[in-house]
Design a protein around this nucleic acid. Structure first.
Length: 178
DNA sequence: TGCCTGATGTTCT
DNA sequence: GAACATCAGGCAC
């Protein structure tokens, strides 16, 4: 599958489980780091826990753009987290990548949204990046079987805690909270 | 196992 | 000026 925009131009709660098992390929310092996505969360404009909830701002602008681009935000004074923009343009939806399973020798930890950004060298410089292109590409694999996926409520939010928009690959040791 | 806290800067009110 | 889609370390149990 190569057409990111077509595959991801769907509601975030459809795209989030769809992204499990897909790969992120990061080229940095002459090396290529690969990771398989094993944990995701969906956010959209109707959702009180989402950055896009209160409408388009300079920070969230990317979320309202076309699907298949990267939205990076900075939080807690020291961490970056990365999201894949989903949905139709001007919809303000995205999927947070919470954990990766390293497919080659990524030395730093990749469990947790901030840790995986650090491991892959992702910071605000990549905000708005097209994930079809180097140096950070998203490779869509075949969707996982539903029986291999678990759905729960999201982690680390204070609003809309009852919305079950977190998905992870059952049994993966890179998912912290089962 | 589970709660509390510190480190730290951007965004929005 | 408060809130924050985090994480690791400390300490009580």
């Amino acid at each position: 599958v190569t057409d990111l925009a077509a595959e991801l131009g769907v509601p975030a709660e459809i795209a989030a489980p769809r992204l499990l098992g897909c790969e992120l390929v990061r080229e940095i310092d002459g090396r290529t780091l690969r990771g398989r996505i094993v944990e995701t969360e969906a956010y959209d404009q109707t959702d009180a826990a989402s950055h896009s909830y209160k409408g388009r701002t300079p920070r969230t602008d990317i979320m309202f753009g076309p699907a298949g681009f990267l939205y990076v935000y900075f939080t807690y004074g020291m961490h970056y987290c990365c999201n894949v923009v989903t949905g139709r343009e001007s919809e303000g939806s995205a999927v947070l990548i919470r954990a990766l399973e390293p497919l080659n020798d990524i030395s730093a930890g990749t469990n947790g949204p901030a840790r995986l950004c650090k491991a892959l060298g992702i910071d605000k410089g990549l905000n708005g990046h097209d994930l079809a292109r180097s140096p950070l590409r998203l490779i869509l694999n075949e969707p996982l079987d539903k029986k291999d996926i678990m759905q729960t409520s999201r982690v680390g939010i204070s609003r809309a805690q009852d919305v079950p928009w977190r998905w992870y690959v059952k049994g993966s040791r890179f998912v912290s909270r089962m």
